[in-house]
């Protein structure tokens, strides 16, 4: 069994500025959830938004629950409240 799986994390807007990066390759334990990935990212980038309730997660371009499990090679995105339109 793999000891770690690799995911590609993408950050946008205010979260991107807080972390100072758009994308990061992250290794997490097999069975990790979206919430685990976010906490792992926060350990590396302490300026990242602490209030997870104001953030939504997406796996492979689909909004997903915080307890959804990530898989090897997934693209994981953390999405602050959106403000498209005018």
């Amino acid at each position: 069994m793999a000891v770690a799986i690799a995911v590609r994390v993408r950050l946008f807007a205010r979260l991107r500025e807080q972390a100072g990066l758009e994308t990061e390759a992250l290794e997490v334990a097999p069975g990790s959830t979206l919430a685990d990935v976010y906490e792992s990212l926060r350990r590396k980038h302490s300026a990242l938004e602490p209030d997870r309730d104001s953030v939504r997660g997406a796996i492979n371009q689909e909004f997903s629950d915080w307890d959804a499990t990530v898989s090897q090679g997934d693209e994981v995105a953390f999405i602050p409240p959106v403000s498209g339109g005018c």
């Binding site: 946008f12 807007a13 205010r14 997406a58 909004f63 995105a77 999405i79 602050p80 959106v82 403000s83 498209g84 339109g85």
Partner: peptide, 8 residues
């Protein structure tokens, strides 16, 4: 669109 499309 304003609620669910990831644009900021």
């Amino acid at each position: 669109l304003k609620e669910s499309v990831p644009i900021w």
